[in-house]
């Protein structure tokens, strides 16, 4: 494999600075989730009473770490930034309490299933596998060939395709949703940004 090995202790990007306003915002989002019957009181509790402000809106730190390792294989970093630099986990986390709320439970169950699968097959966390091992396991998921006992609630194929699709959204979509940080994917494609009304085609920026 020519791509760099993912660092064994890879963790999500450094915690963002948290302000009182941000905590309240997280609480408000969680409360809205509760109001429509999808969020869990645990999310609210974690936000308000853990004494430590949460890094993520939906994911636990452990889930975010695992998801980050998956996303980094779906869109690896090479000469151009990948899912990690684009902030795909931040994008997905944000959407799981927003537009993708209906997938939230599938993430919770699927990430746990992958962790269990990995323990059963390799006796260590996914994040600690070599890059080649990670790819091999993800291919198994994609093809629906992971051991079935861990994937009774959500199928491994469905889970993988969900994460794959959402990673592409986070990488390629507008930065306003939390991914594509600094327009990394537009830069990679040579796509002009921002799209200036009526001007880009005349080469004003080139």
């Amino acid at each position: 494999m020519s791509e760099p090995q993912s660092a064994p202790s890879s963790k999500p990007a450094a915690p963002q600075k948290t302000t009182r306003r941000k905590v309240l915002k997280v609480a408000a989002v969680a409360a809205a989730g509760v109001a429509v019957g999808v969020g869990t009181p645990a999310v609210l509790n974690r936000a308000l009473f853990s004494g430590r402000p949460p890094r993520w809106r939906f994911l636990t730190d452990a889930e975010a770490s695992l998801l980050d390792a998956i996303c980094a294989q779906i869109i690896p970093t090479d000469q151009d930034p990948g899912a990690r630099e684009a902030g795909c986990v931040a994008f997905i986390d944000r959407q799981l309490v927003g537009a993708h709320q209906r997938f939230a439970e599938r993430y919770r169950v699927g990430l746990a299933a992958l962790a269990a699968t990995c323990q059963a097959l390799h006796a260590k966390p996914f994040e600690d596998l070599s890059s080649a091992e990670q790819i091999k396991l993800l291919e198994k998921l994609e093809q629906g060939q992971a051991p079935q006992e861990h994937w009774k609630i959500v199928s491994c194929g469905e889970f993988f395709h969900l994460v794959c699709d959402h990673s592409m959204q986070g990488f390629s979509g507008s930065p306003r949703h939390g991914g594509n940080k600094d327009y990394v994917s537009y830069r990679m494609l040579g796509l002009e940004y921002p799209d200036i009304i009526g001007q880009n085609r005349y080469g004003i920026r080139s």
Binding site: Q95, H100, Q169, S172, G173, S174, D195, I197
Partner: peptide, 13 residues
């Protein structure tokens, strides 16, 4: 404007 994920063509979000 210019938000592919919130467009009628690819309404991902």
């Amino acid at each position: 404007n210019d938000d592919e994920l919130v467009s009628q063509r690819t309404p991902a979000l």
